[in-house]
Design a binder for these strands. Structure first.
Lengths: 195, 195
DNA sequence: AGATTATCTGAACGCGCGTTCAATACAATC
DNA sequence: GATTGTATTGAACGCGCGTTCAGATAATCT
């Protein structure tokens, strides 16, 4: 027996990526075997290699796609009117986007070390791009006298770390909904960089 | 050939833990083999089992010891005069302690998922203890009207995430020394919860 | 209907894994 | 200098790993 009825690469490919993302996020890249991924997809291990040259590349493509989507999604957010509005937009965007893709976020922050040097550099570069987006907002605000941040680079890293931490405790259906979380974090960020 | 001259359990035990902490932090728990640890210690793999019943317990004991030391170290910090002084002490303590033990911090935040449920619960409980220390400071400050934090639990998690993030970018001998980093973060935290 | 192509199976490859244990070498004690 | 106890070796256990590939099946094309 080989191919099952109705199986196609347009289905299997995305399914492999979704399953891999989920399992990598839950158990860690090194702890998940190609056979486990294949089993969850409903396919033999060898079939995975129709869709990825090797395990590390599978991880890299997940991370790369996530970072690309993150940057594209932020760039699609309407530019607010001035640094304050743009900062608020950034805070709310980052929380919303990260909660929507908790698994991919987890991966991007935890499994970078499983990439070879070249792949690592690519992801690291995209991350720096994203951080620079925020840093620019902060710097603009400082210039206009709206913000007081003694070190805009450190401030942007601090803010991103704080916002990303939401994914470690937020649970759907819990005490707070997403908008309430956004309000709380925006309040803290706004004050943290206030002039 | 068996034991080498001068080898004793008082030396090998701590060395195993130090090597394991370092390798786990660098490559991840699942990606490091007992043979790699043994090789770095200068011993055969079997000898590790004189010091730990299995690999997971080795990880658990590293995490447990780290959390115990974290709580003990914070409790040894002189209680400041009022919530503002205590918050400043917390911020500077957390940064200093985490930078001193970057490997253990990394482990504690990334390899929890490799523990069984009981071991996981123990570490999780200690972490919650630590978070509660900060939350109490915030709550006291809110009561006294010094702080404005709409949700002290979320605020404490946000602050800890922000502070812990220092370990991901700080490099010894870089542009900023530890005190300068402490100043920047204290400035942000102070304002973030300001009334 | 027959040939071709895309998709997948199932078995195999060599290797390293966590862990166990009898044998052994050294240190301490008598 | 013999005995005892501790620290360690080195080989072995069964198992699962990532990856490859010839063969089988289903869909598509002519």
């Amino acid at each position: 027996m080989a191919r099952k009825t109705g199986s196609h690469s347009e289905i299997t490919g995305p399914r492999i990526r979704a399953v891999a993302r989920s399992l990598f996020a839950r158990y860690g890249f090194a702890a998940v075997s190609m056979r486990q991924i294949a089993a969850e997809v409903g396919v033999q291990a060898g079939a995975l290699y129709l869709y990825t040259p090797d395990k590390e590349t599978l991880l890299f493509e997940l991370l790369k796609a996530h970072m690309d989507e993150l940057l594209a999604a932020w760039d699609a957010v309407p530019a607010g009117d001035g640094p304050l509005a743009r900062l608020e937009a950034f805070v709310r965007f980052h929380i919303r986007f990260n909660l929507d893709r908790a698994e991919a976020v987890f991966l991007s922050y935890m499994e970078l070390r499983n990439l070879g040097p070249e792949n690592f550099a690519v992801i690291e570069g995209l991350r720096r791009d994203y951080e620079t987006r925020l840093e620019t907002i902060l710097r603009d605000g400082v210039v206009e006298g709206l913000f007081a941040a003694p070190d805009s680079k450190v401030a942007s890293l601090a803010i991103i770390a704080m916002l990303t931490g939401v994914t470690t405790w937020y649970r759907e259906g819990g005490r707070l909904d997403r908008d309430a979380v956004g309000d709380i974090y925006w309040d803290m960020v706004r004050k943290a960089v206030a002039a």
